[in-house]
């Protein structure tokens, strides 16, 4: 056969949407959506232009942060954030353990299962900031409301993952323990605990990290911590102080990430 008998054209066959008409509909749909969506964005360009100068000041503040002039505020915010992070993680995890066990289908009777799963669902569906708004309204401004917010959010996170872990444990080991005539508590202690504890420790450390980051946010709505300091600094257009706060947050998150990976290795 000579080479000329072979086709000279080849087109890559479509991989995802195989039908040509659907593909066209989809492409037009995406373009129309983008046009509509971008159309809703009203930009006041003079305002943005003014903003650029402020943006530049912020970048400068970030590069030359001012730790000193607001140091007492920063220190207070930092102490509140760190203490709130630790206490809320401890309390949250402590409450999560029974709820997580209750939300595991293989350990809990159905009615307990549904109660615990709904607690988890509520905690996960509501954002920290929204919870914080309500708790601040109830308990007043300050880190106590923040502590409650983060504890509540921790429950949704840890209990869900813990329950999923327990549901995935090796049934064979649980069977073996049950076969010895062990009580329910002994079952949890011997069959479940050894399998999920390492994960629980890892998750708690991860949540500690998340709680610190969140503590910087909920301060904006009045729940204390470094977020409140940051909010004040930005309101006063003190970008160098704001830059200092942000750098501290970034630094602590980085330390926490390295620290927790080191601690996890150490504990195993």
């Amino acid at each position: 056969m000579t080479a000329t008998a072979y086709p000279t054209r080849w087109k890559r066959p479509p991989q995802i949407v195989k039908d040509r008409r659907w593909r066209i509909v989809l492409q037009i749909g995406i373009v129309v959506y983008l046009i509509l969506a971008i159309g809703t964005v009203e930009v006041n360009w003079t305002r943005v232009y003014d903003g650029l100068e402020r943006g530049q000041r912020f970048v400068m503040g970030f590069l030359q942060p001012d730790f000193t002039s607001r140091w007492t505020d920063i220190r207070q915010g930092l102490i509140e954030s760190l203490t709130m992070t630790l206490t809320s993680t401890v309390v949250g995890v402590a409450i999560s353990v029974p709820i997580g066990i209750g939300a595991a289908r293989n350990l809990a009777p159905p009615w307990i299962y549904y109660i615990c799963r709904s607690i988890i669902a509520v905690s996960r569906a509501l954002q920290e900031v929204i919870i914080a708004i309500f708790l601040v309204a109830m308990f007043g401004f300050g880190p106590f409301a923040g502590f409650l917010t983060l504890s509540f959010a921790t429950i949704g996170f840890i209990a869900k993952l813990l329950a999923d872990d327990i549901e995935e444990i090796n049934e064979g080991q649980a069977e073996a323990i049950r076969a010895t005539g062990a009580s329910w508590l002994q079952l949890v202690n011997y069959a479940v605990q050894p399998q999920v504890i390492p994960r629980l420790i890892g998750l708690s450390l991860y949540r500690l990290d998340i709680n610190f980051r969140e503590s910087a946010v909920i301060g904006i709505v009045g729940a204390g911590g470094i977020g409140a300091t940051l909010n004040t600094a930005i309101d006063r257009y003190e970008y160098d102080s704001a830059g200092a706060v942000l750098l501290i947050v970034i630094g602590i998150v980085m330390v926490a990430e390295y620290g927790s990976s080191y601690l996890r290795k150490f504990l195993q």
Partner: peptide, 9 residues
């Protein structure tokens, strides 16, 4: 918001 003003952008 502090820099470029409130809004979608």
């Amino acid at each position: 918001v502090a820099m470029i003003g409130p809004g979608l952008l």
